[in-house]
């Protein structure tokens, strides 16, 4: 559970192992996103790319793990992200969340979190925001 949160509080960062082709294959099946551009090198090359790249939703799922590591899933009120850059295969995402503010919404105390996913080379792949009920 999250400790006493206040604006500026930072949740423990979540870093995952480098994304393998095997992970992309599993995620294609598990997520239902069978777009071949994530698993089939021939298709990626035909689109002018050097290699396959990770599903944006995989990084969004990693970031969601950071949220549910800290809050029960029924406390999540909203969660949105913008995908800022492609995550290449073998990329190593690191997920961060910082409390932006805490306000009362419809009688509950809700924390707004600023979210970021970065790769080891500093590339920001995803930015976003989540709101979580604290009570």
């Amino acid at each position: 559970m999250a400790p006493d949160l206040k604006p500026g509080s930072r949740l423990d960062e979540l870093t995952v192992p480098p994304i393998s082709r095997h992970t992309l294959a599993l995620f294609a099946g598990a997520s239902g996103d069978h777009n071949p551009i994530h698993v089939d090198l021939d298709v990626a090359k035909s689109a002018g790319l050097d290699d396959v790249f990770a599903h944006g939703m995989l990084s969004m799922a990693y970031l969601a793990r950071l949220l549910t590591n800290n809050f029960p899933p029924d406390k999540l009120r909203s969660y949105r992200v913008r995908f800022a850059a492609i995550t290449p295969v073998h990329g190593r995402p690191s997920c961060q969340a910082v409390v932006n503010g805490i306000t009362d919404v419809d009688g509950e105390r809700v924390a707004t979190l600023d979210l970021t996913v970065t790769l080891a080379d500093g590339t920001v792949t995803l930015t976003g925001e989540a709101s979580v009920a604290l009570d």
Binding site: N35, I37, G56, M60, L76, Y79, I86
Partner: peptide, 17 residues
């Protein structure tokens, strides 16, 4: 063309589990 599609933004508003 599906190969030309990127995911730009994604948002969820949760009502219940």
């Amino acid at each position: 063309d599906l190969r030309a599609v990127l995911h730009g933004e994604q948002e969820f508003a949760y009502h219940r589990l």
